[in-house]
Nucleic acid binder design. Structure first.
Length: 183
DNA sequence: TGCACGATGAAC
DNA sequence: TTCATCGTGCAC
């Protein structure tokens, strides 16, 4: 497997989101290597996107989104689940891609359909916030075999408060994959 | 310093 | 449809 480079993330967020589908999320922790294939993502397009956390501006929590691409943005939601994002585009652009579901590949014994469960199954927590994905213990890699699949576009989940931004088709998933969280 | 509210998931 | 549960952001 080939680890994705900084350049991969330093591109248009929607492009990165779609290309992350089918890639492998790898996390080494306590001597265990957990791997999941990314099957569902959502794109968050920066401060002008009212559904994105960066719409609130540069704060202590969102500063990672404003940083350089290729870093993990992990935060706690509803007081009990973590959500894993990947920062995209140039520093200051404040865009990111939310990983919503993966397909279990290695050392994953829990369900992974949904951002909260995904983080739980891959042992992702706040410790990994701002973690550089160019590192050797937490990164995303391209598959050896580039399997073909169709991409389905849908509105994002849980962002009804964001006005017309809630209607945009910024959620992408692999058609027919049964590990997708919501069809 | 206080408080309302989630990029959720599971149960009822 | 409701609830568990708490960090964050913004109003006092």
């Amino acid at each position: 497997m080939q680890k994705l480079s900084r350049k991969f993330y330093d591109r248009d967020t929607i492009t990165v989101a779609k290309e992350l589908l089918g890639k492998y999320l790898v996390h080494h922790t306590h001597g265990i290597e957990r791997i999941g294939k990314i099957v569902e993502v959502e794109a968050y397009l920066g401060p002008h996107d009212n559904a994105a956390h960066s719409a609130k501006g540069l704060t202590d929590r969102t500063k990672v989104m404003f940083g350089p691409p290729g870093h993990a943005y992990v935060y706690l939601i509803y007081g009990m689940y973590y959500c894993m994002n990947v920062v995209t585009e140039r520093e200051g652009h404040a865009s990111a891609v939310l990983l919503r579901a993966v397909e279990p590949i290695k050392n994953i014994d829990q369900r992974t359909q949904g951002p909260g469960l995904l983080c739980k199954a891959l042992a992702i927590n706040k410790q990994l916030n701002a973690h550089d994905l160019m590192s050797d213990n937490f990164y995303i890699a391209a598959a050896d075999d580039s399997a073909r699949f169709s991409i389905v576009k849908k509105p994002r989940i849980g962002v009804d408060y964001a006005g017309h931004w809630a209607k945009r088709l910024l959620r992408f998933y692999i058609k027919g994959n049964c590990f997708v969280s919501k069809l």
